[in-house]
Amino acid sequence: MTHKNINLKLKVWKQKNSKSAGNFETFVVKDISTEMSFLEMFDVLNERLIGEGKEPIAFDHDCREGICGTCSMYINGRPHGPWHATTTCQLHMRAFNDGDTIVVEPWRANAFQVIKDLMVDRSAFDRIIQAGGFISVNTGNAVDANSMPVEKDKADASFAAAACIGCGACVAACKNSSAMLFVSAKVTHLALLPQGSPERRTRALNMVAQMDKEGFGSCTNTGACEAVCPKEISIENIARLNKEYLMAGLTLEK
């Protein structure tokens, strides 16, 4: 791919705080290298805005390696932009053409309040994890990993689910603002391993209860979440969560 510079028009959501109403503002950016990441393009724009004495655009970012789940932009009608299995920070400007107009919106869901501009409050995910996305381990030395045999297929499926970085793209993409792909990844990750089995039933029930409390919608199996997930978490996990939930609900003694 040959390197070139492109000019773009950005329509970006600007919102002062969670209380105020927001609106789209248009920015023109020039001489953007196609080697830049999407966030670097925003850095260039913000540098310019700061130089002009204007307020920069607020957006979430941290590792910029595609593993932390912090960046969250809904770009041209797709969470994390047009590339498959890519976070916003790993999206590069060669995905766009010279003269393109790019519409950038924050994740939209009642459970994800906009804090400012493109930043949303995803602490609902933290509270879901606190409700059951953990294992309890007695103090003492860690048990030798090899003393606990795990079937290869289960270990692989658990690991694939554990790849979830909790970015919230699944919620942003879902027409119901459902967090089921996230919750199912976290439940699957632990339910398939022996370490997760003592709390397996209460985990599924408690995490779903917290998910409902946070104001996420129901899953209708449309598959939009799976299509936009930067870590390619499978919708199969949602079916597994449904099973975990139903079995726990039917078999718990109280």
Binding site: K11, R108, N176, S177, G223, A224, V228
Partner: peptide
Amino acid sequence: QNRSKRKLGYQVQMGNKGSK
């Protein structure tokens, strides 16, 4: 209920990108 979970919608809809 599901519709009420997103009070403010998107300017650009996802449409058929990912779901039927």
